[in-house]
Amino acid sequence: MSFPTPLQNTALPLPGGKGELPALGFGTLIPDPVMAKRAIKAALRVGFRHIDAAEAYRNEDVVGEALQEAFAEGTLTRGELFVTTKLWNNNHRPERVGPALDASLRRLRLDQVDSYLIHTPFAFQPGDEQYPKGEDGQPLYDDGVSLLDTWRAMERLVDAGKCRFIGLSDVRLDAVKAIYTAARIKPAVVQVECHPYLPEWELLEFCQQHGIVLLAFAPLGHGMEPRVLNDPVIVDIAQREHRTPAQVALAWAVQRGAAILTTSTSLDHIRENFDVSALSEESLARMRHDISTRVRLNKVVDTGLPGFIPRAQGA
C-alpha cells in the first residue's frame, strides 16, 4: 500500500544558493483587520512559513502586529519565516522606491523583508493617491519612468540589506525576459495569476531555466466563474485520490515546480490548504492534458489595476 507524499515542507531554491521560498504561502489580502490578524496567526500556527503582503493592501500594519504576536507567543522565530511585500504603482520613480520600502518595513515592524516585488509593471503618477485618474476616469500613468529604472532602484535596496531578494508581479513573459536580460541582480520571484485554467507553462519554463521561482496567486481560481474547483477532471481526481478539489489544484501547482499563495479566513480552509500531498503521475498527466478551459480572471497585466483588491468608492 502506498501513502501520499506530503508537500508541506517543500521549498524552492532562490538564486545564488542564498535561501529558499516555502512552496505553500499565505496571502494577506483580507480587508477586515480583525479577521486578517486572526487568519495570519492561524496560518502560522498551522505551519505556513511564507507570508505575502503588499503596500496596496493597506494592511501591512495588521500583518506586522500578527507577526510580532506570533513571535512573542513562540509560534515561530523571524528566521523561520519568509516575508514578501510589494512596491505599489505610484512609487515607481527611483527616488520613491527606497522610502516606500522603509514605510513598509515600519508598518511590518521588520528590519528587512525577504522578498520585495514590483507589484505591477505599470507606473502611476507619483504621489500619495493610490489610484490617480484623469477626468475620463482612467488611470494616470507615468511616462517619465521605465520598469528598468524602477528595477535599478530595487537592486540598490538589496545592496543596502533592506531586502534579500527582488522580483516582479502581475507581469507577462516579455517583460520578465527584458528585466532578466538587463538586470545586475536577477529577479528571484515572479508572482502571477496561475491555476489549472491559466497554467502559464511558457512562463514557468522560462523561470525554471533561469533559477526564478514562479509564485502563483489565485491558484484555486479565487472563487470566480468559471470555477476551477468545479472542473470535472479535478473533481474526479479528488474523488479517486481521496482529496478535496482544492488540495488537487494546489498539489498540481507544487509538483510542477511552482510556489503558491492561498488566502482564507476559515480555519478549516487554512488547514485544508496546508494539508497538501503529492498526486499520482496519472493524475498529473490528466491535469495537463484533459483540462481545456483557459481563462484569465484578473486583468491587472493589462492595466495595472488589480481586480482582486477592493478600491474605495470612486477610486
Rank of each mutant, 00 (worst) to 15 (best):
S2N: 12
L7D: 01
Q8Y: 12
L12D: 00
P13S: 14
P13H: 07
P13W: 05
G17M: 00
G19M: 06
E20F: 10
P22V: 01
L24D: 04
G25F: 01
G27H: 00
T28S: 10
I30N: 00
P33N: 08
A43L: 00
A43M: 01
F48L: 14
H50P: 01
R58Q: 15
V62L: 00
V63S: 03
E65L: 05
E65N: 04
Q68A: 02
A72Q: 12
T77Q: 07
T85D: 09
W88I: 11
N91M: 12
R93S: 02
R93V: 05
R96D: 12
P99L: 15
A103Q: 13
A103G: 04
S104A: 10
S104Q: 02
L108F: 01
L110S: 02
Q112G: 11
D114R: 06
H119M: 10
Q130P: 08
P132F: 00
Q138T: 15
P139R: 09
D142V: 03
D143Q: 13
D143I: 09
V145T: 14
S146E: 10
S146Q: 05
W151F: 15
W151K: 04
A153E: 12
E155I: 11
L157S: 03
A160D: 12
C163A: 14
R164T: 14
L173E: 01
D174R: 14
K177F: 14
Y180S: 05
Y180I: 06
A182F: 09
A183C: 02
A183G: 00
R184T: 15
K186A: 12
P187H: 00
P187E: 00
Q191P: 08
P196N: 01
E200A: 10
E202I: 08
L204H: 09
I212W: 08
V213I: 07
L220R: 02
L220S: 13
G223Q: 00
R227K: 14
V228N: 05
L229Y: 05
N230L: 06
V235W: 09
A238H: 07
H242A: 11
R243Q: 10
T244V: 08
V248A: 08
A249Q: 07
W252D: 07
V254L: 13
A259S: 06
S264W: 10
S266I: 05
V276H: 10
S277G: 13
L279Y: 08
S280I: 13
S280M: 15
S283D: 03
R286Y: 06
H289W: 15
D290A: 12
R294M: 01
V295P: 08
K299M: 15
V300N: 04
G307F: 08
A315C: 15
